[in-house]
Nucleic acid binder design. Structure first.
Lengths: 239, 239
DNA sequence: GTATCTCACATCGTATACCATCTGTCTCAG
DNA sequence: CTGAGACAGATGGTATACGATGTGAGATAC
């Protein structure tokens, strides 16, 4: 009997087996960084974070190591961790890489898109056009992301999408602010969207589609960078 | 005087300030995985590794978390860490992504390559041709990597190269065995190398160069995959 | 007033200890 | 013989403790 009780104790799950604390800390930090609550340069103090999350520093350290491996956080020995700073040059390199990856991802999705997908994407693009009067960058950007999400959803290569995701995560808050720099860029962008949709609908050669998608991303980069490096070739490979 | 001695004691670095143990463990593990001493599926037991490296498990855990973030290691709660298995489908997706990234990287290096670079690359390629009689996959692969390293060295986008590196690391031991699958593939490969060199020398459009470089990588994939999915489109985007 | 030194404190780095969880083996009922 | 359950050992997960290191404020000499 005492034996049975013991057994019962043993069988019962004392902890409901959620995610490990390391994982909790990882997601918590990543979310904060993505939300810009922790902006680039922000100092991440292990003890403080551990206290906030009600855990010890060990899991927090592990989480920060993971984020470091992803490039979101910089960890300096005996100094501490900071949210990574993205300087202009890194930004350009990442955007150029993104243009290549997103171009390929779009092309790899092209043949799998259904007419419904196209319709949905076009509807979103039209809502983007509506937001152009009385321009709200936040709403515009949200729609923009939905637009591309629809295209990417059919990408036959999930790894390619992971690479895109990781790269965007690195850029952190800059992701959302891309369009605020050059207002005129928004109009251009919706026009390019429509252009891409037409190519997709018409079963254009994958090369054409890849080219258009790549240029679309690079144009964003150009818009952001205009004031800095006006005449440098910012990344349109001549495909 | 006693004061001076104390000061001296204090100033002297008791630990010579090497890399942290976490970093040591990280590099040690990464090296082992790259060398195939830890093959895919190999179980990484924290305690054992800690003992081997003469440290406690905490730094080892951190190292494994970093490797997990890079995709080299899979970590399952309360079960343990394993060197990631790469199945055929993941392999294909990674190789396709690599073809895209390497194509772009080659194109981004094209205009910066000097005649000396081309000469050196060609010399290496000729040594590859020599190894074809009495074929030694190991030597061939080493030369192959040097060949591409020369081209990539001038790539204007370091981030693109990082992405290439990380992706190769994920494939681990498969990196070296690519050519052993289809013997005839080696001849083809050196011919493609020469083709790429000619394009580079002649200042061909970047699109042509990118296309050639991308096809080169995909051909390797085809060679590896032939027996599995003979007629699927394995990744040559129609650029 | 300025530059340098010193010291205290904040923070990181790691080892140790202990609890939770899994896994394989052994037992026993059917 | 078979399968379900229990137990023990192995292993992962986290907290705590303590040593190592960097940083900045204050003191001191010039």
């Amino acid at each position: 009997m005492a034996r049975d009780e013991l057994t019962t104790e043993r069988t019962r799950r004392t902890t409901p087996r959620g995610p490990s604390k390391s994982q909790q800390a990882y997601h918590w930090l990543k979310e904060r960084i993505a939300r810009q609550e922790f902006t680039p340069g922000y100092r991440l103090v292990l003890g403080a974070i551990a206290g906030e999350l009600d855990m010890s520093v060990v899991p927090v350290r592990e989480a920060i190591r993971q984020l470091e491996a992803e490039g979101l956080v910089t960890f300096e020995r005996n100094v501490g961790a900071h949210v990574s700073m993205v300087d202009d040059s890194q930004y350009r390199f990442s955007m150029q890489s993104l243009s290549v990856l997103e171009g390929a991802a779009t092309a790899l999705a092209a043949r799998a898109l259904t007419p419904d997908d196209i319709r949905e994407a076009r509807a979103i693009n039209e809502r983007m056009i509506e937001t152009l009067d009385d321009f709200d960058p936040r709403a515009f950007t949200a729609l923009n992301q939905r637009f591309h999400a629809i295209l990417f959803a059919r990408c036959s290569n999930p790894r390619m999408l992971e690479l895109v995701e990781t790269e965007w995560a690195k850029l952190g808050h800059l992701r959302d602010s891309t369009f605020s720099f050059v207002p005129g860029r928004a109009q251009e962008s919706v026009a390019e969207h429509e252009n891409i949709l037409v190519l997709l609908e018409s079963g254009a050669p994958l090369g054409e589609i890849e080219k258009a998608a790549r240029r679309h991303r690079v144009a964003t980069l150009d818009a952001y960078m205009t004031h800095e490096h006006p005449d440098e070739a910012l990344g349109v490979l001549d495909i």
